[in-house]
Write a protein that binds this DNA or RNA. Structure first.
Lengths: 131, 131
DNA sequence: CTTACATCTGAACAATCATTCAGATGTTGG
DNA sequence: CCAACATCTGAATGATTGTTCAGATGTAAG
């Protein structure tokens, strides 16, 4: 019913107090973009499998990651380049092979949370079929 | 150096044991897709702000969500439709207004984890400038 | 019933993105 | 140095997606 300026633009607002409160408690734009970006890295089955694999076993070379994830080695390389650019994974050279590992504690936490929930759900479903 | 069948296809593998181990411990395809999908919902600044707002204040109508997030009401409506389709948010009608709230504990956990980290990082940065 | 309101919807457009292909880079062993 | 190897890279393609616009639905108030 009332109006307010936000980006300098005028908008309708019902509960001005709530709106003001939420707006101050919301993360800064920069943080929101960064966060969304981070979620975006996890929003693709291929990359998700790559990261989950690294979380599980610690370190793997490109061709093994391809074998595990079912992607082509080229696709894996592209994915790893992206993850590398975002400092999510780290490389270690060993002869002609490149071994990748997780390098971001934030992503590790999110992966843990997400995968824990998945396994928990699966466990429940298994329990149901118990007898 | 060795080879293996995965999708029936033949692939190079270096550490066959690790590959086999990871493959069994990895979530099922269905779960991976579902998870990636979930992350995808969080991978956009607009939706992220909407969900963070709901996490903060519990319940908001569409136009207030638009005011908070800085999106057009139409864009908000589209976003909410998507979130609704994935059972992430829930609607309550009140007159001609629709009030939305979070409805998915999984997403709530992920949001909590993510936002906690953001605030923690911010706190550290603030501390540094304490003098 | 008619108007103003709040939200929803579908089509269309622009932008982003993942994958593939062909070839480049750099590495090891003979 | 040469050949096989492991990974990387860029361009091109096809698919997916977010936003906008115009209008549809449904609700409340006079």
């Amino acid at each position: 019913m009332s109006v307010t300026g936000i980006d300098g633009c005028v908008v309708r607002v019902v509960d001005a107090d709530k709106v003001a409160a939420v707006r101050t408690s919301l993360p800064a734009d920069e943080d929101v973009f960064e966060l969304a970006d981070m979620f975006g890295l996890l929003a693709e089955p291929g990359r998700l499998r790559l990261l989950a694999s690294l979380l599980e076993v610690g370190e793997l070379c490109v061709c093994d990651l391809a074998a595990v994830s079912g992607m082509s080695e080229s696709a894996v390389s592209h994915a790893l380049r992206l993850l590398r650019a975002h400092r999510v994974v780290q490389v270690r050279r060993a002869g002609r092979r490149n071994y990748y590992r997780l390098a971001d504690s934030h992503v590790r936490m999110l992966l843990d949370t997400a995968l824990a929930h998945t396994e928990h759900t699966k466990a429940r479903q298994t329990d149901v079929g118990h007898s």
